[in-house]
Design a protein around this nucleic acid. Structure first.
Length: 132
DNA sequence: CTTCTGACA
DNA sequence: TGTCAGTA
């Protein structure tokens, strides 16, 4: 069996990006934000462990949930490397998540208010459109 | 050829 | 986030 025994436990940035469905640019950004801490090869290239794929997916999920990188940096360490589905590990995590939930609720309220303004504008102008 | 850092839009 | 430059 001719396996690539030298990198059997890790991949370089392009590979991880491919496996996680993202770009090398994003992975470097995550690291800059303290979300990833890849090892470095003698060449200076970043070296990611196999479980990094899961970590990146967690990051993307949290990002899509509206959390900023700072919040994710605090939450990530509460998630086991091998976990498949996101599940609370630390009790403090629940409080942090509640804070984020409130942040999202506030955003929704602001957007709803903005939509209400547009609704009024649209209704006020609907008559002028028929008889220009 | 791939990646790295820094930088610009 | 994409992309370019100049390297290693």
């Amino acid at each position: 069996m001719k396996v690539k025994r030298w990198s059997a436990l890790g991949v370089r940035i392009s590979e991880l990006a491919r496996q996680a469905g993202t770009t090398p640019r994003a992975l470097r950004y995550y690291e800059e934000q303290g979300l990833l801490r890849p090892a470095r090869l003698a060449s200076g290239y970043r070296h990611y462990e196999p479980q990094a794929v899961g970590t990146v997916r967690h990051i993307q999920l949290l990002l899509s949930a509206g959390l900023n990188t700072t919040a994710i940096a605090e939450i990530l360490p509460c998630i086991p490397d091998d976990v498949t589905v996101l599940a609370p590990t630390c009790p403090e995590l629940l409080d942090a998540l509640a804070v984020e939930r409130n942040r999202i609720t506030t955003s929704i309220d602001r957007l709803a208010a903005a939509r209400a303004v547009l609704d009024r504008l649209i209704q006020a102008g609907s008559g002028a459109r028929d008889q220009p």
